[in-house]
Amino acid sequence: MGYLKFWGVRGSIPTPGPSTMRYGGNTSCLEIQCDDKLLILDAGSGLRNLGNALMGKGQAIQAHVFITHMHWDHIQGIPFFTPAYIPGNSITFLGADEADRSLQSIISGQMDPTYFPIELDDMGAELNFRNLSEDTYTINDIRFETLYVNHPGNALGYKFYLKDTSVVYISDNEPFDTSAVASEEMLGEDGNQKLIDFVKDCDILIHDAQYTQEEYEKHRTWGHSPFTFTVDVALQANVGQLVLFHHDPLHDDNAVDTILESARQRVHNSDKSLNIIAAQEGLEIAL
């Protein structure tokens, strides 16, 4: 029926080099092929290699590119996405705009002549833009839900319903502070429960797991999760398979190995079961 393939798994900035060879150094980009439909999740530097692979097929390309948010590591591959330069191809970008700036304006901004020699309007393919908020959609027969997640700016998580498989993709997300919930003195709420409800019973969860718990204590309000939170959410939500994602640029392959082992140990210490892997460039999951 199709597959999900990782073309970029790194957070924040590309990290090429011998120490990241196994997991990969490109920033966020996933490919989903479902029947004849091409879905691309995020357009980080991994998008360049995906574009080259698509060009190798020698076919006209119709792609929907779902962007979680507009930080560089999620859009920096667009200027290097060769299919976008080919007349006859159709690329639709989907994501959340800002109150004072359109989706197209945000994406074209990084291709301002000051920063890049070719402007978005000069790309040869048909480019479309579709603004999303937190809602349920069916676009091109693809049913999906979105959720605002806890990251600076308007950031979305996606839940795709692909035939018999549900895939949730939340690249960047930080736990909410739930240290106080709805008392007379302190007004708060369990903001993480909404995330658990969104993820509930999905087959595959791809989620931010950038930090260890110790690292997270030094990086609060940076918009990312310790793997411990990610594992706990997956356990509470009865997820089928968890994919640890958005590896920290300071983490070499051995550090990612250690996080993966620790995440599996956390599950082992619970009374539940959960299959966990770490996202790796080139990894393909059958759908």
């Binding site: 109150a99 004072d100 700016g153 240290s179 003195e185 302190m186 708060g188």
Partner: peptide, 17 residues
């Protein structure tokens, strides 16, 4: 961003009542 759009204040939950 919120202040630039015209909000008077930006408080974060949990907030002391």
């Amino acid at each position: 961003k919120a202040l630039a759009l015209g909000a008077k204040e930006y408080l974060t939950k949990p907030v002391n009542s």
